[in-house]
Design a protein around this nucleic acid. Structure first.
Length: 268
DNA sequence: CTTGGGACCTGGCTGC
DNA sequence: TGCAGCCAGGTCCCAA
């Protein structure tokens, strides 16, 4: 999410108010829920009225009541360039100010979708941790009744939206909660700590313009620096910054979970 | 309803 | 050296 937020922030001043003059889809599987031809045709001539993030979606509001939803998944990138060397990628959007935005995506899991009503997709998302209404109380209610590991709950975008694998690990470390702790069994105090940790981890990562651990780069090609602040994520075997214990890794739902076995000791 | 597993995808890595 | 097989992780879909 910090990566998508960074992209939204940096793309916004470049394309807000601009008209979409050309769309070329090189990889038809990029377009979800409709034909690539129709997708391109229906985008032409519309202007960009808003550039927002919802969960991990990048949401472009367009003139004529259409919404362009982009999801980058793991390796999707949006890269800007001006005119000359036309960028390849899965698709390229050209705007009236001459700017080109390429959707590049090594593993081809990202999607774009043009809809009249984003509700059916976005309303399924849980609350955004950076939204004003995301209180500790809200988090507590969202976790109630879920017996799954807290790490799995944080990654379920229907429960809360925006946390990816790295940031879930970082938030749990900061809150000193073991990733396998059943979500519904967190104490009020633990939920409070987790709530604060989610906010601080995400805000700090946005301040670092995202984490370039895998293939993420900013629209201009620059790297993010948020990964330099990671305490546990992708730090298997390194000493914990708090207690010096070796960072461990377990599998939860086929995903790697990094944690400090001492700072995040289980209570059961 | 909740939960868990497979599928998708491909560059990089492991191991024989 | 060559190559099969595994792994990463966000989301959807399906079965229990």
């Amino acid at each position: 999410m910090p990566e998508v937020e960074t992209i939204a922030q940096e793309l916004r001043p470049l394309i807000l108010g601009q008209r979409i003059d050309d769309v070329v889809v090189f990889d038809p599987t990029l377009v979800a829920g409709g034909s690539p031809e129709l997708f391109a045709a229906q985008l032409l001539g519309r202007t960009v009225a808003s550039v927002e993030r919802r969960g991990k979606y990048l949401v472009l509001g367009l003139s004529g009541s259409r919404w362009l939803l982009l999801h980058l998944r793991m390796t999707g990138r949006l890269l800007v360039s001006l005119g000359q060397s036309p960028p390849r990628g899965r698709a390229v959007f050209r705007f009236s100010n001459g700017l080109q935005v390429a959707f590049s995506d090594r593993r081809r899991l990202g999607t774009v979708r043009l809809v009249e009503d984003p509700g059916p997709i976005l309303d399924k998302l849980g609350p955004d941790p950076l939204g004003e209404d995301f209180t500790s109380d809200v988090l507590s209610r969202r976790l109630a009744g879920h017996r799954i590991p807290i790490k799995a709950a944080l990654l379920d975008q229907h429960i809360v939206s925006g946390l990816g694998n790295m940031y879930a690990d970082e938030a749990l470390f900061t809150a000193r909660i073991h990733p396998l702790e059943p979500a519904h069994s967190l104490s009020l105090q633990e939920v409070n700590r987790l709530h604060r940790a989610m906010l601080s981890v995400l805000r700090q990562a946005i301040g670092g313009r995202g984490a370039s651990i895998d293939s993420y780069v900013r629209p201009g090609g620059e790297l993010g620096s948020a990964h330099f602040s990671f305490k546990v994520a992708h730090r298997l075997g390194e000493p914990c910054s708090v207690c010096g214990t070796s960072i461990e890794r377990v599998q939860i739902r086929k995903r790697g979970a990094y944690f400090c076995p001492k700072c995040q000791s289980r209570k059961w």
